[in-house]
């Protein structure tokens, strides 16, 4: 009898934790989506009420009057291009560290992964001065340059592990067959490193897509702005038009969630990759 009660209590507890977790994770997002369909008056009258009708007027307004297309394009460009380039760079670096013995190998890897310990903000002034000095303040190029350095430590770590998990015999037999450095890299190892590369790429893309700090610091005019920075500007622009503010928030939040839905496996792997480090 006591055993059954205990078992039921255990189940109740477990499902309470599950329901609570789901609620805190998606309720705020559902709330802003719902509010973006309500009129200003409806929002003022109570946060729990449902919208009287579903219409996309607020979204249409944002894209027609406020050039959200430009911000979206900026965000895509500024997060994609640096991710693509640094993925190539870090893959090259991680490959030689994983597969070859050469002087300085340990040192380079240690230095690269140690960057994980450096708080983002502590590098602010030198990076700010660097970008201003290169005459790239308020340019997309300047921001993209900074984003190249996103995720150096974790990407190196993920990619090095990936290459190390590819059997060395493959490289050795390719060498015996007379394959040179490039052939061994491109046709033997690279195709087998796909999963690791996607994991690192997804991690860097999401970080860049969501980045606010440097995007806010290094960009000063609206034609170069990215979506996360626009949210805060909207806060002051539409002080009393809540519908538009909520719609703007939805536009910022939803692409990340859709991206995540497609790349869920890789996102999970990249987030847990710190575990291997510990």
């Amino acid at each position: 009898m006591i055993d059954i009660v205990k078992k039921i209590l255990g189940k109740v507890f477990m499902y309470s934790v599950i329901i609570f977790t789901i609620t805190v994770s998606i309720f705020p997002i559902l709330w802003i989506i719902m509010s973006s369909f309500k009129t200003n008056g409806e929002i003022m009258s109570g946060p729990f009420t449902l919208p009287s009708s579903i219409d996309f007027r607020a979204y249409k307004y944002l894209f027609e009057k406020y050039d959200f297309l430009t911000y979206t394009f900026n965000s895509v460009l500024i997060s994609f291009l640096p991710t693509f380039l640094s993925l190539i760079f870090y893959t090259m670096g991680a490959y030689v560290i994983a597969k070859y013995d050469f002087p300085g190998k340990k040192l380079f890897f240690t230095l690269f992964t140690m960057t994980l310990l450096v708080p983002v903000h502590s590098r602010t002034q030198p990076i700010f001065s660097l970008i201003v000095g290169l005459d790239l303040y308020n340019t997309k190029t300047g921001l993209m340059l900074v984003y190249l350095s996103t995720g150096l430590a974790l990407s190196m770590f993920i990619l090095k592990n990936t290459f190390q998990s590819i059997p060395m015999e493959l490289t050795e037999s390719a060498n015996l067959d007379g394959a040179g450095f490039w052939r061994t890299f491109l046709s033997i190892n690279l195709p087998l490193a796909r999963t690791g590369m996607i994991t690192a790429g997804v991690l860097m893309f999401l970080t860049n897509w969501n980045e606010f700090y440097y995007a806010n610091l290094l960009i000063s005019t609206s034609n170069n702005r990215t979506l996360p920075v626009i949210t805060i500007l909207f806060n002051s622009m539409f002080t009393y038009n809540y519908t538009n503010t909520f719609a703007a928030l939805v536009v910022v939040v939803i692409p990340g969630i859709i991206f995540y839905a497609f790349a869920q496996r890789y996102v999970q792997e990249s987030m847990a990759s710190a575990a291997i480090k510990g």
């Binding site: 977790t21 994770s25 969630i257």
Partner: peptide
Amino acid sequence: TRAVFMVPNVISVAAWAMIYKYF
């Protein structure tokens, strides 16, 4: 649950802060 729990971590901290501000 595991998938949904990840959602707050994949969206912008800035947007999340704003959502909470209204919350």
